[in-house]
Design a protein around this nucleic acid. Sequence first.
RNA 1: GCCGAAGUGGCGGAAUGGCAGACGCAGCGGAUUCAAAAUCCGCCGAGGUAACCCCUCGUGUGGGUUCGAGUCCCACCUUCGGUACCA
Length: 840
Amino acid sequence: MSDEREDRYDPAAIEPKWQKFWEEHKTFRSVRRPGRPKFYVLDMFPYPSGDGLHVGHPEGYTATDIVARYKRMNGFDVLHPMGWDAFGLPAEQHAIKTGTHPRVKTLENIKRFREQLKMLGFSYDWDREVDTTDPAYVRWTQWIFLKLYERGLAFQQSDMPVNWCPELGTVLANDEVTAEGKSEVGGFPVEKLRIRQWSLRITQYADQLLEGLAGLDWPETKVKQANWIGRSEGSLVDFGVEGHPGVTITVFTTRVDTLPGATYVVLAPEHALVSRLTGGDAGGADARRAEVEAYVASTSKKSDIDRSDATKEKTGVPLGSFAVNPLNGERIPIWIGDYVIGSYGTGAVMAVPAHDERDHAFAVKYGLPILKVVDEAGGEEPDVSGAAFTDDGQVSKEAAARSKAPLAAGTPSEAARKAVTTWLKEQGHGDFKVTYKLRDWVFSRQRYWGEPIPIYFPVECDGDPRQKDAKYTVRYDQPIPVPESELPLQLPDLEDFKPTGDPQGPLARAPEWRFFQKDGTWFARETNTMPQWAGSCWYYLRYLDPRNAEAAFSKEAYDAWMPVDLYVGGSEHAVLHLLYARFWHKVLFDVGVVSHPEPFTKLVHQGLILGEDAQKMSKSRGNVVNPDDVVKRDGADSLRLYEMFMGPLEQVKPWQTSGIAGVRNFLDRAWRVSTQKVTDDAGAYDQETRRLVHKTVKKVSHDIEGLRFNTAISAMMVLVKHLGQLEAVPRDAARTLALILSPFAPHAAEELWERLGGKASVALEPWPAWDEELTKDEVIEIGVQVNGKVRSAVKLAPNADEATARALGLEDPKVQEFVKGKAVKKVIYVPGKILNFIVG
RNA sequence: GCCGAAGUGGCGGAAUGGCAGACGCAGCGGAUUCAAAAUCCGCCGAGGUAACCCCUCGUGUGGGUUCGAGUCCCACCUUCGGUACCA
């Protein structure tokens, strides 16, 4: 204490000291104590890349750490864990290049990430660390897969066109392919290939996933997920085909009220009926077939992306056959066109060019009739010569006349849809139908570094299929689940991780692993692996009970901590991870091992941190900021404070290295006021200081609850500045400062707390209370307006009555200047806010 | 195109319908110092004014509601994110 004056804030010395202390004392071990409230605050765990942490990581992690520490100090039992989403392509790509086993590289990366996170002082319970590649974790990922399989939710699809990326040597989910038709990882070209796939029937949960959103405290992400699920209510309509009794073309439409205006039908080029319905024209049938086949061939070559470019001109060819409108028996031509998507709805549409933009464009191009059947809501006839009229309106006379169903002119569109569908249903030509944009989830990857899918198949062979050049047939149609007792099914060791170009994937190169004999019969293991999403679908559950060898987690652990109270992570996971995890959770709910329908109560996305040039940080731009450098120069506490001070958590913000000076200066000052002139003289704690301390505690508390860390820090800066101007700083004020600073700058706060005579750890101290009375000023200043313009200000009690305020206001010389010679017609006085004289 | 978010000083940003610009960065001036670093104090939207006082304008644009609008309503512009022929 004697050398206090020389003692400067030195983060390089105190940060390792306290990190060691926390580790040795297991300060942040999560323990559930009876009678306490719980708080589960979760970060999206990182993929431990070879590049180490970048400054984007600590943003969300600091935010959750502040909340975790604040909640702990407020008496909550807090679960705040961290782990590694460690399967994934980069480690495998590295293995391909270097020959190093992905596990080696992965463990190395994890070690680095763990060190970096510990360097930042996050209050994780490191005893709960999970690693998705750990066999003890994989075991339960595979167990969940078996639950999905048992319930018919995991199934194989053959001949399904999938996104095959030759460069990566794998199939990708639609969600892993960018709008430009490139792989999200690496940006390589993706093409369509039909191969056997495992898929998960997420569509079966579409309605639940949609409805579950309603009760969640989530941001705009809810809207994104709802759009992604894309529920659409409409009708199925069966069109007969002239000359083909028994054949019907079923279309899906949300505008069945426009059925009388259908002037043609369009099938997707890949529609099953295309070949059968081609020809038909008297004469020229062969020419027709040739043209149709050429068209189908040309569209199948186009990628989904080319086809889905809405700006591109629509193309199509007539099949030469005719459909029969079930509503009125009219005969209309059947076309195929690439603007109809085979995989949505029924892959066929009725075209109503008068009331659908796409049909309109197509009809104009090919000279097909445009028939108006919906009037505007007011009854006027819309002009559809230039563009379709797509709003709801009412049934036109024309439409009523063209309908065999009882449909009165003037019926609103909505009612007309019900009436038409009901009639169609009665006639056996249609029904109500709900469709979704959401597709089943392609769940297999032709990779090495993923969870093996715990399935095997019988093999038909003469002799040993492991022999080179052995002839065998794997009966993929007879999948057999690996018994739970045999989990985890571990990956074999390989020497060569290169993509094979063979959709079986690299595991097919491990015949000793792949083939095995049981009761004299040969079997082959599935050689596809799970996608990276698998491990992250349930990691928040493993944290509950991470060392459990009997189950994924115990019921006791589940009941103790679930659901997740606050989940913070990037908005890039708004749809995929967050939808997949919800899906698995709902399945586990049906299995009976979880008891909440939704896992994540409140969700927040931290905003991206851009480079100093306001561009996305990337190695190629050379604008990446390395947190190690910041920590080396100014310490972890400054990094944490700066990242929180930059602006609102959810906002995208550019990094400014110069800005760190501000928070560093703040810590230097806080250090000085708390170490250099602390006094125990009660008289030093003047009323103004006391009030400011209480106000600051209140503001910081509220701001943490609202995740407004930037304004909380600003309030502490004001307090520190004030304390710095005092002759001597009351010890209680300094101790309170250390307490409220501790969630933000935990190392500095621990050190100050100790020096102020507190017992370590400050993290275990109760959060300071504030006296509401002391947060209210006795005298405040409010603006005085004349005719709505601010002219002056007066000081008065916050609860002063109007007469007092009015008198004070009128005494003010500046106010008098604007009021003199005029009559005060009205006075608006809002206590504590404003005084406004209306004169004239 | 559609869905969502956002536009405030040189910069990051603050502001339950009530004195716009808190807090910080950068900048300017001063104190301290032999000098510097560090520290401390002050100024810091634009225009008018020699200056002070003060006045006018000012939160993307144009309207509106209100005693009073950055904040609410309508229309539009721009930026960012998502999505993309979903019938």
